[in-house]
Each structure stands twice: as structure tokens, then as C-alpha cells.
Nucleic acid binder design. Structure first.
Length: 477
RNA sequence: GGCGGUAUCGUCUAGGGGACCAGGACGGAGCCCUCUCAAGGCUCAAACACGGGUUCGAAUCCCGUUACCGCUACCA
């Protein structure tokens, strides 16, 4: 049984890069079977916050990436980490190092000054037994260093294939600080063993940690998991994604009106390809199609434009009924409507969404376009007025005439409207657009909207006529 | 600096020796549809980093170079 885990450190919001890593872990488990676990790596007390932990949970929940079993808090496993480090010491795989940070730093500077790469010289490992005993007895502070064995360390990475590191390039790294707390690599390995993780899938910035971790597994006598190192996600400038690139937290996109399934679909395509030129997928399709074969090695650049397009695709994939709650929420938040406003007008709301979603890429786009249909009056876009109501007397005459025609239409439905209005255009010897555009401005205040008959239908006869009256008043004043 | 990783259109990618004068998608340009805006359809511009090999044949394999990224902490 596969057991994978997503292990974010709660030092900020759920980042798109983290979300993508979580997604691939989740997809793997959903496709191949197994458990998807969540571990919060909160051992950096200085940077970890409760708020961040909550934000990560919320982000994952919003995306629908549900985890199995209870969340593991790394900070709670300190005793286990320490015990594992102690075992390392007992087995002779690690040793006590009494060098102080200042001493190490001084030697490092010295080495750099002479152009050499610094590597801990293992001097404390050569301490005579009696001296070692004396220092321990005297209670001298020490860190525990792992004694890197000779040879080389390699593994068959699921995405990169075989990667090999000569051990001589790895120094005896610290596994336990002088205060007895574990260093990252120790904590990770200890936890992954305890959680019985079978596949460690994470960002490829961890590639160089991997040989150290493998050595730890081996020294601890634990079975090795497999490793899969996913490529990073960069900003448009090719640099590591940061706040400078604008929205990088998944929550930001949620608030911009992006659908979670679109976010997932977009993220999935960053570093993975199902092949066959498939792009737009539902979540079940992604699970079905997911394969480690399609994983890419190359860092990808986050393109918000394509995300928006993707969202538009998912918007049209979704039934307006399903969109309704999201739209009402957004409308409410925008102060354009109240939820109970729609309880009696559900069919009307659905019709409105039908009209708007095809010309929207986000929920927010829908909200922006909804204003003319919800408010009592419209405000006229100056450019629209300038362009479509250029000659006021003519426009007044036209709108008045249109008003009369509209008032007599029966039933109040698009086919009847279309016939009446087109007939009128013919009688006037002008193209239909000459009527529709000025009318559109009267109805919506804008030169762009859904088809004019749909707008009329949605507005209802009374409001449509009232809008025309408003326009007439405006034009005469 | 050392070590590791990566390298196909601006971007995401297909491609795993001949099917490729390199396919799809986003974005861009244009056309069609059309009451406007979208959506949709069609068309165009746009890439195998460079240099050596291997091979009858390389985007695909190997080696260098270059560029970029990551790690190089008593951070995670």
C-alpha cells in the first residue's frame, strides 16, 4: 500500500507550489491507491504560526485535497527524533561534536579566504576516549553529527532516474542541536519512518537533502522509501515565485473567483502532462489519467493568463445551478445583492448566470457584469453615451419609438422581440445594430452586454421600459 | 567556488533513433459567425541552447560548453 505525505512548514499561506506538490501526492494516491497524509513541519518555532497552519488547512480543503488519518505535527514528535538520534549515537553512526558555532564559523571563513570549500574536519570524532568521557561528564554542550560513510549514495528517482552523490562531498552534518532539538533532515527521516511513508514526493529543491536522508535511513536500519522530485514553479521572470509576482497563495485565487477544479487542473499541467493533447480535465479525469510517466523534470513558469482561460473552461463546464451558490456569495460580498433576494427568483438567477458565464473567466467577472441586472438604475458609461447617443434628438426619437414597440410586444419573449425590432429596423431602412446599440446603452449603460433580447427578457418588461424612460429623461435634460 | 539538477515556440507542453521541413494549448495577429462583448470555428507568426561524437539516420543516445535553478546552516 502506498503511503505519501505532504509536509508543508506553516510559515505562510498555502503557496501554489506547495499546492501543486500536495496535488501530485494526492493524485498519486487516488490513482494508484494508498493514503495521503499531512504533516505540518512546525519545528521552526520562530517562523511557524498557528494562523499559517490554519491557512494551509483551508487551502487544502478549498482545493478538495482531503488527507487521510490525523494531521501529524512534527513538533510533537521531538522525543522520537531525539531517540532516533540517540540510536545513531549508540550504533556509532554519529558522534558528539563539541565545536562551537563560533569556532566552526571562524574555520569556514578561513577556508573560504584561502579559496577552499569548507567541510567539517571531523576533529571531534578523533577525540580520545578519556577526553570524550571527561567532556561528557563535565556537561560540555555538544551537537550530534552524523558520520558520513565512504562511498557514494544514489537512488532511482521516480522523475529523474538514477541520481548519485559522492559521499566525500557531503560533510558530517548535524542531526541534533546542542539544545537537543533535531535538525530538519533528522526530523523528516524520523517522521517518515514513523509514518511508514513509501514514496517521498516533494520539490526538487530537496534533491541535495536526499543523500543525507538516505544515509540516515540506512544507519537507522529502516527500509528506504522511493523518492520523486518534482520540478519547481517559477514566476513570469523565471525566478522563484514570490510576492513580487503578485498572487502566489491559493487563497488569492479563490478570492479572485477562480474555481478550485480549475486551479487543480492548471496546477496539474505544471509539471505533468497526460499526453494526447488533453488540457481541460475534471478532477475524476485527472485521477484517472494521472501517471508518474507524465511527470516533467523542468521547472515551469506560472502563467496567470492560462489559469484564467482554464477557469473559463471550467466555468462553462459547470451547470449554472452548481455555480449559483458561488455567484450569490460573491454578489453578496460585493454588496450587489443579498442571498435571500434570490430565494424567490432562483430561475431568474440561473438565467442570469447562463447569460454571463460564457463571457466570464472568473466568478468575479460574472459579478462585474451582473450589476445592470440587479440595480434599480444604471449609470451611463461616458464613452457609451458619446458613441451611441451622439445625436440626442435622434436618439430620443428612436428610443421613444422603441419603447412603444416594446410596450406592445406579446408575449415578452425573445422571438417576439426580435421580430418586432427587426421589422422596425427594416422600416427605418437601417441595420439592426443601429437600434440595438443605443437601446443597449439605455438598458445597461454599456456598449457591451449579452444579446439584446436576452437582456430585455431578463430585465422584464416593466424594468426595461423604466430604463428607457430613465434614458429619455437623461437625454432630455 | 564545490556538488547536484534542468535545457523543444514568449509561456505550459507532445515527442522516448526514421511516422517531425517538430504536434496541441495559453497568449498574439487575422478571418468567419454576429445586434455589441464573449464563446465557438478557421488561418497565420512563433521552438529542438551551442559544439562534438555514436548511427545509414538524432529533438530523441553519449560527451563537453553555455545558461538557468537548487543545495552547500546548531533554517525548513
Amino acid at each position: 500500500m502506498h503511503r505519501l505525505r505532504f509536509a508543508p512548514s506553516p510559515t505562510g499561506y498555502l503557496h501554489v507550489g506547495g499546492a501543486r506538490t500536495a496535488l501530485f501526492n494526492w493524485l498519486f494516491v487516488k490513482h494508484y491507491g494508498g493514503q495521503f497524509l499531512l504533516r505540518v513541519e512546525d519545528t521552526d518555532r520562530a517562523r511557524s504560526t498557528e494562523a499559517s497552519t490554519r491557512a494551509i488547512f483551508e487551502g487544502l480543503e478549498w482545493l478538495g485535497l482531503a488527507w487521510d488519518e490525523a494531521v501529524v505535527h512534527q513538533g510533537a514528535n521531538l522525543a522520537q527524533h531525539r531517540a532516533d538520534a540517540q540510536r545513531l549515537l549508540e550504533r556509532g553512526a554519529a558522534y558528539r561534536c563539541f565545536c562551537t558555532p563560533d569556532e566552526i564559523e571562524a574555520r569556514r571563513r578561513e577556508a573560504e579566504a584561502s579559496g577552499d570549500a569548507f567541510k567539517y574536519d571531523r576533529r571531534c570524532d578523533r577525540l580520545p576516549a578519556d577526553e570524550l568521557a571527561r567532556r561528557v561528564a563535565a556537561g560540555m554542550p555538544f551537537v550530534v553529527r552524523f558520520r558520513v560513510p565512504d562511498g557514494e549514495t544514489s537512488w532511482d528517482d521516480v522523475v529523474h532516474g538514477v541520481i548519485t552523490f559522492p559521499n566525500k562531498d557531503i560533510e558530517d552534518f548535524v542531526v541534533l542541536r546542542s539544545d537537543g532539538t533535531p535538525i530538519y533532515n533528522m526530523a523528516v527521516v524520523s517522521d517518515d519512518i514513523a509514518m511508514r511513508i513509501t514514496l517521498v514526493m516533494r520539490g526538487d529543491d530537496h534533491i541535495s537533502n536526499t543523500p543525507k536522508q538516505i544515509m540516515l535511513y540506512e544507519a537507522l536500519g529502516a527500509a528506504l522509501p522511493r523518492f520523486a522530485h518534482l520540478p519547481m514553479i517559477h514566476g513570469v521572470d523565471g525566478k522563484k515565485l514570490s510576492k513580487r509576482h503578485g498572487a502566489t497563495a491559493v487563497g488569492d485565487y479563490r478570492h479572485m473567483g477562480i474555481l478550485p477544479q480549475a486551479m487543480l487542473n492548471f496546477l496539474a499541467l505544471l509539471g505533468w502532462s497526460p499526453g494526447n493533447d488533453i488540457e481541460v480535465m475534471t478532477v475524476p479525469q485527472m485521477i484517472e489519467l494521472f501517471s508518474t510517466e507524465g511527470l516533467s523534470k523542468k521547472a515551469a513558469i506560472f502563467d496567470p493568463k492560462k489559469l484564467e482561460w482554464m477557469n473559463g473552461q471550467h466555468l462553462s463546464l459547470l451547470a449554472s445551478e452548481a455555480l449559483a451558490p458561488l455567484v450569490t456569495d460573491a454578489l453578496t460580498n460585493a454588496g450587489l445583492a443579498t442571498a435571500d433576494q434570490f430565494t424567490s427568483k432562483r430561475a431568474w438567477l440561473i438565467a442570469l448566470i447562463d447569460l454571463l458565464k460564457v463571457r466570464s473567466r472568473t466568478i468575479d467577472d460574472i459579478v462585474r457584469q451582473a450589476a445592470p441586472y440587479l440595480s434599480a438604475h444604471v449609470s451611463y458609461d461616458p464613452e457609451a453615451v458619446a458613441k451611441q447617443w451622439k445625436d440626442r434628438p435622434t436618439t430620443v426619437e428612436l428610443l421613444s419609438s422603441l419603447r412603444n414597440t416594446l410596450a406592445a410586444i406579446e408575449p415578452w419573449e425573445p422571438p417576439a422581440m426580435e421580430e418586432a425590432l427587426r421589422t422596425q429596423a427594416e422600416q427605418r431602412g437601417v441595420g439592426a445594430g443601429k437600434l440595438f446599440q443605443p437601446l443597449r446603452v439605455a438598458l445597461t449603460g454599456l456598449t457591451v452586454s449579452a444579446g439584446i433580447f436576452d437582456v430585455l427578457a431578463l430585465l422584464g418588461r416593466d424594468r426595461a421600459l423604466a430604463r428607457i424612460d430613465d434614458a429619455l429623461n437623461y437625454l432630455r435634460s
